[in-house]
Amino acid sequence: MQSQSLIGGFSDAPKDSAIAFRVALDVMARPGKIAKISGGTPPEPMSTSAGTLLLTLCDPETPVWLAPSLRGAQIKEWLRFHTGAPLVDSRSEAMFAVGRWSELLPVTDFAIGTPEYPDRSATLIVEVEALENAGAILHGPGIKDTSELALPEVKAFRNNATLFPLGLDFYFTSGSRIAALPRTTKLEG
């Protein structure tokens, strides 16, 4: 193991993860809201926000699927060392998946839960170039009237919303910024 993998975790795990989780909870509860999240320093090219989210939510109970661009030995070792999460090749087994949008397609491969247990669905962490409040118009739970978020495409998210209460939940990460799109959000435009 390269010693590089040993660094880049939370410096004070209980507090850092608590602060990071509150951001993750806040953006999931308010789709379209963009917030800052930090604490973890994953190896390149994974973003700070995606890395911090994985440190906050993953452990030996959560199979993680990494996209090809993030499958470097350094990232794998870093994730294994800091979270103990099993890395899986099969997309349908993953509880969390990280990668660029083009790599995550087709998202229909990921688990969407069952009618009895819709919570047994994957959370996708989409690495994007930039996050901005412009583009698709969102409405639904967590949004007062409407909000706006730039999305890599609209159709896949619209299809996902029609599966409700089944479906996938998404985080969008860029640098140290994060936004979320749960399955409940309806899209226009």
């Binding site: 209980p14 939510l57 452990d59 819709p118 749960p182």
Partner: peptide
């Protein structure tokens, strides 16, 4: 530990909370 619970337990609860928010 901060807020009494161990980290693994908090992660488990946090994952449940996020799914709860996503499926109101």
């Amino acid at each position: 530990n901060f807020a009494y619970l161990d980290e693994q337990t908090k992660r488990m609860i946090r994952r449940a909370l996020l799914k709860g928010v996503a499926i109101p």
